[in-house]
Design a binder for these strands. Structure first.
Length: 202
DNA sequence: TCCGCGATCGTCT
DNA sequence: GACGATCGCGGAC
């Protein structure tokens, strides 16, 4: 397989990166050598001046990675339970990121099923940010701050085959900035998350 | 099928 | 001490 997407891919405006990630292949290599992969089908953009963005209130130990170089991984825990996978965008000093919300499983489906507690439906293995992290065994301890553009990394993103149809809607599961159309997904894909936008799709 | 609620804990005030 | 970029279960219809 070719090299992972380079840092220049993540140095573009965050909304553009969020759109360009749709259709790309997310590949997780487990410590045992097994490969898990899936096509990214849903993302959300978090930008400067956005009240829903973790970085909105300034730099803290938790969100420090967002201020760092593009192409690094920001993982944090939500509701005390779920791990969230984000990819840092923009230049250093500008704290923006893309949340990966859902993928369509390609390789390692049985392993993902086991990691998810034996769930039967393959549509529900990775259709939500918390589920995706659980299925791919992505933890904050191992991945927060890691460079995703490095060859042979435990997690990598590869260029998409072709540009998919893209739909923009409002974001999900937040209480601030709900009106911004920063959620992007591939319509009619059965693996997107089930949450619904609070406003009609744009 | 849809909706409401509890779980659970790191982080910030 | 309160809350959150969520999830899954159980009950109503």
């Amino acid at each position: 397989m070719r090299d992972p997407l380079p840092q220049s891919f993540y140095l573009k405006p965050t909304v553009e990166v969020a759109r360009n990630l749709l259709g790309a292949l997310l590949v997780r290599t487990l410590s045992g050598g097994e490969t898990l992969s899936g096509i990214i089908v849903e993302t959300e953009a978090y930008v400067t001046g956005d009240p829903a963005c973790h970085a909105y209130c300034g730099i803290t130990p938790r969100n420090a990675v967002m201020w760092g170089p593009a192409g690094h991984i920001y993982v944090y825990r939500s509701y005390g339970i779920h791990e969230m996978l984000n990819l840092v965008t923009e230049r250093e000093g500008l704290a923006e990121a893309v949340l990966i919300r859902a993928i369509e499983p390609v390789e390692g489906i049985e392993t993902m099923r086991t990691a998810r507690g034996g769930i039967k439906s393959r549509f529900e293995l990775t259709n939500g940010p918390g589920k995706l992290a659980q299925a791919l065994e992505i933890t904050r301890a191992e991945f927060n701050g890691m460079d995703i553009t490095r060859p042979n990394a435990a997690l990598a993103v590869y260029e998409r085959a072709s540009e998919p149809e893209i739909k923009a809607t409002t974001r999900i599961g937040i209480t601030k900035g709900v009106e911004l159309p920063y959620r992007f997904l591939i319509p009619k894909n059965g693996y997107v998350s089930k949450g619904r936008p609070s406003v009609a799709p744009i």
